[in-house]
């Protein structure tokens, strides 16, 4: 008989259960495959993160020896620096206004586009175009539009509205930054929400129709709740990017007039690369990170109230 039924006479079972040579070879292959990525990630991601923490506790100014100053940078930020609170306020103000307007406009456009019978994809492309162009170029074009004697002034004049020069006005400058950011940024969310609306199964809407729901009800009670997870995703991502706003401000206002449009992103650049206060700028960066994390956590906490997951 060629079969020997399994028995307990197997010798050295535990000894034989070492890791197989093939497994070890596979692990080695994995190591070599990961190596380029690991080197890059350690050098340009992990090391900078650690360095950023350490730097924020020093007073390094690029030249000379850095000295450990404990929490002095953070203390100075919150208690001494006269610019910090305005900067923080500007950042939050921009984020709030931009976030709300972006979501309202992009959702509106997405719904409007989805109501079309033909040509949806062309409208999507049109609103998406600025997303794929350099933010700097966009800002420069808008700067020409807002320039004194430029197209915006001409338009206001034609409408007999008297307005100060937008980019040099304490209040209007931030509004200009918001407008430019919206033009550059609504496209992505428009396509995102439009895609989500496309994916709402038609039978839900048909069922609601048979149940006698009006178009208004179908939108607010069926479509909107069904795409709420995507709305949430768009909200979180938009909030994260808007807290870091920099390009538009660099071109349009350089944080001015005064510090009317200076945001955290601009402050990091200014302190770090114009005043070379690397330690201080790093502390601002960590405040920004804390803000991003806090806002994201807040949104995740809020989502229980308005986001519906279907499983």
């Amino acid at each position: 008989m060629t079969i020997a039924q399994e028995t307990a006479k197997v010798p050295s079972r535990s000894a034989a259960r070492r890791r197989n040579r093939l497994d070890i070879r596979e692990g080695r292959t994995a190591f070599f495959f990961l190596l380029p990525s690991l080197i890059g990630v350690i050098l340009f991601l992990v090391l900078p993160i650690i360095a950023s923490v350490v730097l924020s506790f020093t007073n390094w100014k690029l030249l000379g020896q850095p000295a450990f100053v404990g929490f002095a940078n953070y203390v100075r930020l919150f208690t001494v620096d006269p610019q910090f609170w305005p900067v923080l306020r500007n950042t939050l103000f921009f984020t709030a206004e931009y976030l709300v307007l972006n979501l309202v406009i992009s959702l509106g456009l997405a719904v409007w586009i989805s109501s079309l019978k033909v040509g949806q994809k062309w409208f999507r492309v049109i609103f998406f175009l600025p997303t794929f162009t350099p933010g700097i170029a966009v800002a420069i074009v808008w700067m020409l539009i807002f320039a004194p004697g430029g197209f915006f002034d001409f338009l206001m004049g034609a409408l007999s509205i008297h307005m100060p020069s937008v980019l040099t006005d304490q209040n209007l400058a931030m509004q200009a930054v918001v407008v430019v950011s919206l033009w550059a940024g609504v496209g992505y969310n428009t396509v995102l929400f439009n895609a989500a609306l496309d994916m709402v199964p038609a039978n839900y809407l048909e069922a609601a129709r048979i149940d006698g729901a009006t178009a208004w009800d179908r939108f607010w009670k069926i479509r909107l709740p069904l795409i709420s997870p995507t709305l949430f995703f768009g909200t979180v991502m938009t909030a994260i990017t808007s807290l870091q706003v920099f390009d538009q401000i660099y071109v349009l206002t350089r944080g001015g007039p005064g510090s009317a449009t200076a945001t955290l992103g601009y402050a990091i650049y200014q302190k770090g690369f114009q005043n070379f206060q690397m330690g201080y700028a790093s502390a601002i960066a960590w405040v920004m990170f804390a803000l991003i994390m806090a806002l994201t956590a807040f949104q995740f906490w809020m989502q229980r109230k308005w986001v519906h997951y279907d499983n």
């Binding site: 060629t2 079969i3 020997a4 039924q5 399994e6 028995t7 197997v10």
Partner: peptide
């Protein structure tokens, strides 16, 4: 697999 033994000719 709990320790199987079999031969194929």
């Amino acid at each position: 697999l709990h320790g199987v033994s079999v031969d194929a000719r």
